[in-house]
Nucleic acid binder design. Structure first.
Length: 234
DNA sequence: TAGGCCATCTGGTCCT
DNA sequence: AGGACCAGATGGCCTA
């Protein structure tokens, strides 16, 4: 059904969506709709009581409109479910704790956090490019190693004002430390901007044959990869 | 109980 | 004409 199904939200889901638009809610609403239609057509029906052909035609049209209305409602539900699925996909890749004890991000919070996250990543990328060009020279900036000495210890990361504003919007209770969840990336590294280029002494060093801890060397999370493939497929 | 969030319905508009 | 998209209205659930 909708995106709430299987979510971590304590909110009870809306009535189960059944393909074809015949759930409880829509039935109830549709009954009200039909009654309204009957009420609106009642006066005309009284006037035309003698006209059997006219009545049959009206009945047919009413069935068409009811059927059409159900189809439109069903499409709209599906559209909204698709939208919610995309929203869930966005939540999955957000630097936010996922878990049964964590309340799901609201839609508005998800969008705001996503915006800040993208801005932070863009900023990090710019810094990284600058750093690489500084270290290896401009002639090598496209051929340098993937692993740059750019990752400061999380504790040194300052929180960007945008992130602070997001915290104020969402409330601190809604933003538990990501590190508390095994599924979540470190919060500070993702949520905080680095206002200054970190010193080289705090950088990672790369040894031959040793796994690199820096984020650049980690494979793209499956959730992100699937999301990008989804966007490419459309 | 008020407020927030959400799902659904509905009518209008735009596009193909 | 049919479908997609959008925004307003409505009502339910949950939390502080």
């Amino acid at each position: 059904m909708d995106s709430d199904a299987g979510s971590t939200s304590s909110r009870a889901s809306s009535p189960e969506f059944v393909e074809g638009g015949s759930n409880f809610f829509s039935n109830k609403m549709f009954e009200a709709y039909c009654k309204e239609q009957e009420r609106q057509h009642g006066a005309l029906q009284l006037q035309d009581k003698a006209g059997g052909k006219m009545k049959a035609k009206r009945d047919s049209m009413e069935e068409d409109t009811q059927d059409g209305r159900l189809k439109v409602n069903s499409r709209e539900r599906k559209r909204m479910h698709d939208l919610n699925q995309a929203m869930d996909g966005l939540r999955e890749v957000m630097p936010y704790a996922h878990g049964p004890s964590v309340r799901k991000l609201s839609k508005i919070s998800t969008l705001l956090l996503a915006r800040n996250y993208i801005m932070m990543l863009s900023s990090s990328l710019d810094e990284m490019k600058k750093l690489v060009s500084d270290v290896y020279g401009t002639g090598h900036q496209n051929h340098g190693p993937r692993c740059g000495p750019i990752r400061p210890p999380p504790a040194q990361v300052a929180m960007h004002p945008l992130t602070q504003s997001l915290h104020s919007i969402m409330g601190t209770a809604a933003m538990p430390p990501c590190s508390s969840s095994p599924h979540s990336p470190p919060s500070s590294g993702y949520l905080g901007f680095r206002p200054t280029v970190p010193s080289l002494s705090s950088a990672y060093r790369h040894f031959p044959g040793m796994p690199c801890p820096c984020s650049l060397c980690q494979p793209l999370p499956a959730s992100i990869a699937s999301l990008s493939s989804l966007s490419m497929s459309k």
